[in-house]
Simulated assay, not measured.
Amino acid sequence: MLQLNVKNETSRLRAVVLGSALNNGPTPTKEEAYDPKSLEHIIAGTYPIEKDMVQEMEAFNKVFQRYDVKVFRPEMIENYNQIFTRDIGFVIDDVFVKANILPDRNRELDAIQYVLDQINPSKIVRPPEEVHIEGGDVMLWNDYIFIGTYKGSDYKDYITARTNMQGVQYIKELFPNKIVKEFDLVKSKLEARDNALHLDCCFQPVGKDKGIIYKSGFREESDYVYLVNLFGKENLFHITRDEMYNMNSNVFSIDTNVVVSEKNFTRLNNWLREQGFTVEEIPYAEIAKQEGLLRCSTLPLIRD
């Protein structure tokens, strides 16, 4: 049996589900795009090809192997995008929450059923249908749970609005002892540079007391100020609009002092090293074209 345990984003990782780019299917049509960034690359003819994405994910996998992390991969579904496992579920403490994702992505959960079979069934929950919540919007910080949401009345018109207020409420009821704080995110169906698809597109903690943040990703300045007050401005690395577009906040921590990052994130990677982090640089720029990066393609199960 797997003894789930995840209390934050940065403690030593022991087990993770890493997505897969094998048999990823043809380039989607414009109508099939889930987000503005994919759409941009579909139109430009620069949408990533499977071979390149498989290589990038393999580089990520090799880092995990070096750090002796147990890696599970989803079973292959033919012609299907299975890269972003973060969307389909997440672990809080010792509970696995199945996400109510976009309906046509349900098969992705079936592909990790063999992993779920190794978890105590009483520790797996599935929210009711009206509750929308995706792993990219859920960020753990010990006593805190940060959740990205969208409070606009036009929520249902946005395919990029992935977590609703019912989702926030559901987590509050499930974890009454945690401080649950929601953040209203900026959404755009058309301009990827102004679309915080998930909370991890504009914020993520690193180490024990630091974080990466994009101020304009928050609809309310008070939400940004909340994080500044919690972490301290000197502990936050502020990214630019273009760095947010390239997903600089979507790195992934293997330990409190080890961060896996994209090799082109020069400014961020230099800052991380100055703060004393070991930065494991890998190529991930092709996968980034689908508005997802390192955190999006992982589903941590056990951290120390």
Rank of each mutant, 00 (worst) to 15 (best):
M1P: 03
K7Q: 12
L13E: 04
S20R: 06
L22Q: 14
N23A: 13
N23I: 00
T29P: 10
E32K: 15
Y34C: 00
L39E: 10
T46D: 13
P48Q: 04
K51H: 04
N61Q: 13
V63Y: 07
V63P: 06
I88W: 04
F90M: 14
D94W: 01
F96L: 14
F96H: 05
A99K: 07
E108Q: 14
A111R: 09
Q113G: 04
V115L: 07
V115E: 03
D117S: 13
V125W: 06
P128F: 01
E129R: 08
I145Y: 08
F146I: 04
G148L: 05
K156E: 13
T160S: 10
T163V: 08
I171H: 02
K181I: 12
L185D: 10
K187P: 06
K189G: 03
D194R: 14
L197T: 02
C201G: 10
C202A: 06
F203M: 07
K208I: 05
D209I: 01
I213N: 01
F218K: 01
R219W: 00
E220M: 04
E221F: 05
S222I: 04
Y226N: 05
F231P: 02
M244P: 00
S249Q: 07
V260E: 08
F265H: 15
N269M: 11
W271Q: 11
E274A: 14
F277K: 08
F277G: 10
E280F: 07
E281R: 12
P283G: 13
K289Q: 03
Q290M: 14
L293N: 15
L294I: 13
R295M: 11
S297W: 00
D304W: 03
